[in-house]
Amino acid sequence: MKSSGTWIALIAALGIQAKALGQETYRGVRIAAEVRCTPYDRDDYAYPQSVESQIIAGIGKIYGPYTGQCFATARETDIEHIVSLSEAHDSGLCSASAATKTRFARDVLNLTLASPRVNRYEKGAKDAAEWQPQRNACWFANRTLEVRRKYGLSIDRREAIAIENTLAGCASTEMVVLECGLPAETRNTAQPPRRGNPIDALERWDDNRNGQITCAEARRGRGRNEGATRPRSVPAIATIATR
Protein backbone atom coordinates (compact mmCIF):
# COMPACT_ATOMS: atom_id res chain seq x y z
CA MET A 1 0.00 0.00 0.00
CA LYS A 2 1.32 3.45 -0.88
CA SER A 3 2.11 5.77 2.04
CA SER A 4 0.29 9.08 2.39
CA GLY A 5 3.50 10.84 1.33
CA THR A 6 3.65 8.81 -1.87
CA TRP A 7 0.04 9.64 -2.74
CA ILE A 8 0.65 13.33 -2.05
CA ALA A 9 3.68 13.31 -4.37
CA LEU A 10 1.73 11.51 -7.09
CA ILE A 11 -1.22 13.87 -6.80
CA ALA A 12 1.09 16.89 -6.99
CA ALA A 13 2.86 15.45 -10.05
CA LEU A 14 -0.47 15.04 -11.80
CA GLY A 15 -1.63 18.55 -11.04
CA ILE A 16 -4.50 17.24 -8.93
CA GLN A 17 -5.71 19.95 -6.58
CA ALA A 18 -7.47 19.40 -3.27
CA LYS A 19 -10.46 21.63 -2.62
CA ALA A 20 -12.66 22.28 0.35
CA LEU A 21 -14.32 19.29 2.00
CA GLY A 22 -11.61 17.03 0.62
CA GLN A 23 -12.81 17.22 -2.99
CA GLU A 24 -10.05 16.75 -5.56
CA THR A 25 -9.90 17.94 -9.12
CA TYR A 26 -7.65 17.14 -12.06
CA ARG A 27 -7.30 19.87 -14.71
CA GLY A 28 -10.66 21.27 -13.67
CA VAL A 29 -12.44 17.89 -13.54
CA ARG A 30 -13.70 16.47 -10.26
CA ILE A 31 -12.09 13.17 -9.25
CA ALA A 32 -14.60 10.57 -8.10
CA ALA A 33 -15.42 6.92 -8.56
CA GLU A 34 -18.05 6.06 -11.16
CA VAL A 35 -21.58 5.71 -9.78
CA ARG A 36 -24.67 4.48 -11.64
CA CYS A 37 -27.26 6.42 -9.65
CA THR A 38 -30.07 5.46 -12.05
CA PRO A 39 -30.35 2.59 -14.56
CA TYR A 40 -28.69 3.28 -17.90
CA ASP A 41 -31.15 3.44 -20.78
CA ARG A 42 -29.65 3.91 -24.24
CA ASP A 43 -32.89 5.48 -25.43
CA ASP A 44 -32.31 8.42 -23.08
CA TYR A 45 -29.31 9.38 -25.24
CA ALA A 46 -30.86 9.45 -28.69
CA TYR A 47 -29.26 11.38 -31.54
CA PRO A 48 -30.12 11.72 -35.24
CA GLN A 49 -27.99 10.25 -38.02
CA SER A 50 -27.92 13.72 -39.57
CA VAL A 51 -25.38 14.80 -36.95
CA GLU A 52 -22.82 12.91 -39.01
CA SER A 53 -22.75 15.72 -41.58
CA GLN A 54 -21.75 18.16 -38.82
CA ILE A 55 -18.89 15.88 -37.78
CA ILE A 56 -17.63 15.64 -41.36
CA ALA A 57 -17.87 19.40 -41.80
CA GLY A 58 -15.84 19.93 -38.64
CA ILE A 59 -13.08 17.55 -39.71
CA GLY A 60 -13.16 18.62 -43.36
CA LYS A 61 -13.47 15.12 -44.80
CA ILE A 62 -14.79 11.63 -44.03
CA TYR A 63 -11.93 10.71 -41.76
CA GLY A 64 -11.31 8.59 -38.68
CA PRO A 65 -8.83 10.40 -36.41
CA TYR A 66 -8.25 7.34 -34.20
CA THR A 67 -6.53 5.45 -37.04
CA GLY A 68 -5.78 8.11 -39.66
CA GLN A 69 -8.10 6.31 -42.08
CA CYS A 70 -9.92 8.05 -44.91
CA PHE A 71 -13.30 6.71 -46.02
CA ALA A 72 -14.98 6.90 -49.41
CA THR A 73 -18.48 7.42 -47.98
CA ALA A 74 -20.08 8.01 -44.59
CA ARG A 75 -21.67 4.56 -44.88
CA GLU A 76 -18.27 3.10 -44.03
CA THR A 77 -18.15 4.86 -40.65
CA ASP A 78 -19.87 4.92 -37.26
CA ILE A 79 -20.70 8.00 -35.23
CA GLU A 80 -18.38 7.69 -32.24
CA HIS A 81 -18.81 9.29 -28.81
CA ILE A 82 -15.38 10.20 -27.44
CA VAL A 83 -16.66 9.95 -23.87
CA SER A 84 -19.04 7.04 -24.30
CA LEU A 85 -22.69 7.42 -23.35
CA SER A 86 -22.60 4.84 -20.56
CA GLU A 87 -19.33 6.29 -19.23
CA ALA A 88 -20.89 9.75 -19.10
CA HIS A 89 -23.98 8.31 -17.42
CA ASP A 90 -21.86 6.79 -14.65
CA SER A 91 -19.77 9.98 -14.35
CA GLY A 92 -22.68 12.26 -13.46
CA LEU A 93 -25.29 12.29 -16.22
CA CYS A 94 -27.31 9.63 -14.43
CA SER A 95 -28.84 12.45 -12.37
CA ALA A 96 -29.13 14.92 -15.26
CA SER A 97 -32.34 16.01 -16.93
CA ALA A 98 -33.64 14.35 -20.07
CA ALA A 99 -32.81 17.50 -22.04
CA THR A 100 -29.18 17.44 -20.84
CA LYS A 101 -28.79 13.78 -21.79
CA THR A 102 -30.11 14.49 -25.28
CA ARG A 103 -27.87 17.52 -25.65
CA PHE A 104 -24.85 15.47 -24.61
CA ALA A 105 -25.62 12.70 -27.10
CA ARG A 106 -25.76 15.20 -29.97
CA ASP A 107 -22.90 17.51 -28.98
CA VAL A 108 -20.29 17.54 -31.75
CA LEU A 109 -17.64 18.39 -29.15
CA ASN A 110 -17.93 14.76 -28.10
CA LEU A 111 -18.45 13.24 -31.55
CA THR A 112 -16.11 11.94 -34.21
CA LEU A 113 -16.00 9.21 -36.86
CA ALA A 114 -14.57 5.72 -36.56
CA SER A 115 -14.76 2.48 -38.47
CA PRO A 116 -17.32 0.00 -37.11
CA ARG A 117 -14.46 -2.26 -36.04
CA VAL A 118 -12.92 0.43 -33.83
CA ASN A 119 -16.17 1.84 -32.52
CA ARG A 120 -17.95 -1.42 -31.75
CA TYR A 121 -15.20 -3.92 -30.98
CA GLU A 122 -12.13 -2.00 -29.82
CA LYS A 123 -13.12 1.18 -28.00
CA GLY A 124 -16.76 0.50 -27.21
CA ALA A 125 -17.62 2.03 -23.82
CA LYS A 126 -14.04 2.05 -22.53
CA ASP A 127 -12.61 5.16 -20.87
CA ALA A 128 -9.15 6.62 -21.43
CA ALA A 129 -7.61 4.37 -18.78
CA GLU A 130 -8.75 1.33 -20.72
CA TRP A 131 -8.28 2.48 -24.32
CA GLN A 132 -6.56 5.27 -26.24
CA PRO A 133 -6.23 5.57 -30.03
CA GLN A 134 -3.11 4.72 -31.99
CA ARG A 135 -3.31 8.18 -33.63
CA ASN A 136 -4.32 11.54 -32.21
CA ALA A 137 -3.96 10.32 -28.63
CA CYS A 138 -3.10 13.86 -27.48
CA TRP A 139 -6.22 15.29 -29.10
CA PHE A 140 -8.30 12.43 -27.67
CA ALA A 141 -7.01 12.91 -24.11
CA ASN A 142 -7.54 16.66 -24.18
CA ARG A 143 -10.99 16.39 -25.76
CA THR A 144 -12.02 13.90 -23.06
CA LEU A 145 -11.27 16.55 -20.45
CA GLU A 146 -13.02 19.29 -22.41
CA VAL A 147 -16.21 17.22 -22.59
CA ARG A 148 -16.09 16.33 -18.91
CA ARG A 149 -15.59 19.97 -17.91
CA LYS A 150 -18.45 21.16 -20.12
CA TYR A 151 -20.97 18.74 -18.58
CA GLY A 152 -19.58 18.65 -15.05
CA LEU A 153 -18.67 14.98 -15.33
CA SER A 154 -16.30 13.38 -12.87
CA ILE A 155 -13.20 11.34 -13.71
CA ASP A 156 -11.79 8.42 -11.75
CA ARG A 157 -8.20 8.44 -10.58
CA ARG A 158 -7.02 5.72 -13.00
CA GLU A 159 -8.26 7.68 -15.99
CA ALA A 160 -6.72 10.91 -14.70
CA ILE A 161 -3.35 9.20 -14.41
CA ALA A 162 -3.65 7.65 -17.89
CA ILE A 163 -4.58 10.99 -19.47
CA GLU A 164 -1.75 12.80 -17.69
CA ASN A 165 0.73 10.19 -18.90
CA THR A 166 -0.41 10.95 -22.45
CA LEU A 167 -0.57 14.73 -22.17
CA ALA A 168 2.87 14.90 -20.55
CA GLY A 169 4.41 13.94 -23.90
CA CYS A 170 2.26 16.16 -26.13
CA ALA A 171 3.56 19.16 -28.04
CA SER A 172 0.03 19.86 -29.32
CA THR A 173 -3.49 18.66 -28.68
CA GLU A 174 -4.82 19.58 -32.12
CA MET A 175 -6.28 16.83 -34.28
CA VAL A 176 -3.85 15.73 -36.99
CA VAL A 177 -5.72 15.09 -40.24
CA LEU A 178 -3.69 13.15 -42.79
CA GLU A 179 -4.02 13.60 -46.52
CA CYS A 180 -6.19 11.05 -48.29
CA GLY A 181 -5.21 9.22 -51.45
CA LEU A 182 -1.47 9.12 -50.74
CA PRO A 183 0.63 5.99 -50.23
CA ALA A 184 0.89 4.87 -46.62
CA GLU A 185 4.60 5.73 -46.53
CA THR A 186 3.89 9.31 -47.57
CA ARG A 187 1.05 9.71 -45.08
CA ASN A 188 3.23 8.22 -42.32
CA THR A 189 0.48 6.04 -40.95
CA ALA A 190 2.89 4.25 -38.60
CA GLN A 191 1.89 0.78 -39.67
CA PRO A 192 4.01 -2.04 -38.21
CA PRO A 193 6.96 -3.07 -40.37
CA ARG A 194 6.27 -5.84 -42.84
CA ARG A 195 8.58 -8.60 -43.98
CA GLY A 196 9.32 -8.38 -47.66
CA ASN A 197 7.47 -6.43 -50.32
CA PRO A 198 4.63 -8.16 -52.20
CA ILE A 199 4.78 -5.62 -55.03
CA ASP A 200 8.44 -6.42 -55.69
CA ALA A 201 7.66 -10.15 -55.64
CA LEU A 202 4.83 -9.78 -58.14
CA GLU A 203 6.99 -7.65 -60.42
CA ARG A 204 9.71 -10.30 -60.34
CA TRP A 205 7.75 -13.55 -60.69
CA ASP A 206 4.14 -12.84 -61.81
CA ASP A 207 4.71 -13.48 -65.52
CA ASN A 208 1.05 -13.40 -66.58
CA ARG A 209 0.28 -10.35 -64.42
CA ASN A 210 -2.78 -11.90 -62.75
CA GLY A 211 -1.82 -10.75 -59.26
CA GLN A 212 -0.73 -14.24 -58.12
CA ILE A 213 2.43 -16.30 -58.32
CA THR A 214 1.98 -19.89 -59.46
CA CYS A 215 4.39 -22.68 -58.60
CA ALA A 216 5.54 -22.75 -62.24
CA GLU A 217 6.24 -19.01 -62.19
CA ALA A 218 8.16 -19.37 -58.95
CA ARG A 219 10.30 -22.17 -60.45
CA ARG A 220 11.01 -20.09 -63.56
CA GLY A 221 11.93 -17.16 -61.37
CA ARG A 222 14.32 -19.32 -59.38
CA GLY A 223 15.93 -20.48 -62.62
CA ARG A 224 16.38 -16.91 -63.82
CA ASN A 225 18.11 -16.07 -60.58
CA GLU A 226 20.62 -18.96 -60.74
CA GLY A 227 24.12 -17.64 -60.77
CA ALA A 228 22.96 -14.24 -59.53
CA THR A 229 23.62 -12.88 -56.06
CA ARG A 230 21.15 -14.44 -53.65
CA PRO A 231 18.84 -11.83 -52.11
CA ARG A 232 19.11 -11.33 -48.39
CA SER A 233 15.49 -12.27 -47.79
CA VAL A 234 12.83 -14.01 -49.80
CA PRO A 235 9.60 -12.02 -50.19
CA ALA A 236 7.24 -13.39 -47.57
CA ILE A 237 3.85 -11.88 -48.38
CA ALA A 238 3.33 -12.77 -52.03
CA THR A 239 0.37 -15.08 -52.68
CA ILE A 240 1.41 -18.36 -54.34
CA ALA A 241 -1.47 -20.12 -56.03
CA THR A 242 -1.41 -23.87 -56.53
CA ARG A 243 -3.01 -25.43 -59.58
Rank of each mutant, 00 (worst) to 15 (best):
V83F: 02
V83Q: 01
S84D: 07
S84P: 15
L85Y: 01
L85S: 08
S86M: 04
S86H: 03
E87G: 04
A88M: 08
A88C: 03
A88I: 00
A88T: 03
H89N: 04
S91R: 14
G92H: 10
C94D: 10
S95M: 11
S95Y: 02
S95T: 14
A96V: 00
S97Y: 13
A98W: 05
A98L: 12
A99S: 14
T100D: 14
T100R: 09
T100N: 01
T100P: 02
K101M: 12
T102G: 09
T102M: 04
R103T: 09
R103C: 04
A105Q: 12
A105C: 06
D107M: 11
V108Q: 11
V108C: 06
N110T: 08
T112L: 11
L113A: 13
A114V: 05
A114N: 13
S115H: 11
P116T: 13
R117K: 10
R117P: 00
R117N: 13
V118Y: 12
V118T: 13
N119D: 12
R120K: 14
R120Q: 15
Y121S: 11
Y121L: 14
K123Y: 08
K123W: 09
G124S: 08
G124I: 07
A125Q: 05
K126D: 11
D127R: 01
A128K: 03
A128F: 13
A129R: 09
E130M: 10
E130G: 10
W131R: 02
Q132D: 05
N136V: 04
N136C: 03
N136D: 07
A137M: 02
A137Q: 08
W139G: 01
W139P: 00
W139E: 04
F140C: 00
F140L: 00
A141K: 02
N142M: 06
T144E: 11
T144H: 15
L145D: 02
V147P: 06
V147I: 15
R149N: 10
R149W: 11
K150E: 13
K150Y: 01
Y151A: 07
G152R: 04
L153M: 04
I155A: 14
D156C: 09
R157E: 08
R158D: 15
E159M: 10
A160K: 03
I161F: 14
I161V: 14
I163Q: 06
E164K: 14
E164P: 04
E164F: 08
T166S: 10
